[in-house]
């Protein structure tokens, strides 16, 4: 494995690790108040490793919901990862299946965003491992820490840190938007559709993000395909 590229991955993943710190800490705290032991809470972060699903499961567990429904809801929330890893596969260096099967475990909304917005044409396996490793470590360690120290962090800091993950998404998106109308359209249309589902309450969060992402990606691709075709025809006419 390429050491240098692994270290670069760790550096790129540091912003995720920082973003996870308050979220994992809060998860640990909530798990404690939901009646989970430190082992049960930490085991969930070790084996499931999906923020939104874990938060949701705490709510469902404390309401005494049927375990089968908890698993089903988790699946619905995670369907979007099918899209993300399929998209990411286009960008990843060719590699043995079982190795890709390992770092696939580390693909979250955040690590996907960091990897997929990289400028280079192909992303190396070692780099992906670096990003996944530092983010995962932060998630697991701070779940346990959260269970232990709970709410000892000053309130004003806890409140401010709730923005961390979103600030990271903004920091990843905006530089790609510059001078690229397609990217601007993709993000704005997906945000608008997701907002519509959110405020009308037509779809739950997991489905809403999935549908908004797909609809925007397909719609913009169709517009651009037409645009390209018109440009090609215009070019041919000029040539004739």
């Amino acid at each position: 494995m390429n050491n240098n590229s692994f270290v670069l991955g760790l550096k790129a993943g540091l912003s995720i690790a920082i973003g996870y710190f308050p979220v994992a800490l809060t998860f640990g705290l909530l798990a404690k108040t939901s009646g989970l032991s430190i082992w049960e809470a930490t085991a969930m972060s070790i084996f499931v490793y999906a923020g939104a699903s874990q938060y949701m499961s705490l709510t469902l567990i404390s309401k005494g919901v049927d375990p089968i429904l908890i698993v089903l809801n988790t699946f619905v929330l995670n369907i979007r990862h099918f899209l993300m890893t399929a998209a990411l596969n286009e960008k990843m260096q060719s590699e043995k299946r079982w190795i890709k099967g390992i770092y696939a475990f580390g693909i979250t909304d955040e690590s996907f965003s960091v990897l997929a917005t990289r400028k280079e044409a192909k992303i190396g396996t070692a780099f992906a491992f670096g990003v996944a490793f530092i983010a995962y470590s932060s998630w697991v360690v701070f779940t346990a820490v959260g269970h232990v120290i709970g709410a000892n962090l000053p309130q004003f800091l806890q409140a401010a840190m709730s923005i961390a993950l979103y600030a990271m998404f903004v920091g990843l998106l905006v530089p790609s938007m510059r001078g690229n109308r397609k990217v601007v359209m993709l993000a704005l249309i997906a945000a608008a559709i997701n907002g519509f589902f959110f405020w009308t309450g037509v779809l739950s969060t997991g489905w809403s993000i999935l549908v908004a992402t797909l609809a925007s990606s397909i719609f913009v691709e169709i517009i651009y395909a037409k645009h390209e075709k018109r440009k090609r025809i215009a070019g041919q006419l000029k040539g004739a």
Binding site: A86, M92, V170, L186, A191, S208, T213, V220, E221, A225
Partner: peptide, 30 residues
């Protein structure tokens, strides 16, 4: 998708849509 799509060529329209997804999903996540 990461393990079973390895080495498979997708139709250009599909890979075009897949390349759009990172930016669309960021918009929806934010």
């Amino acid at each position: 998708p990461l393990t079973f799509l390895e080495g498979k060529e997708l139709p250009p329209v599909v890979s075009g849509v897949l390349r759009n997804i990172p930016f669309a999903v960021l918009g929806a996540l934010i």
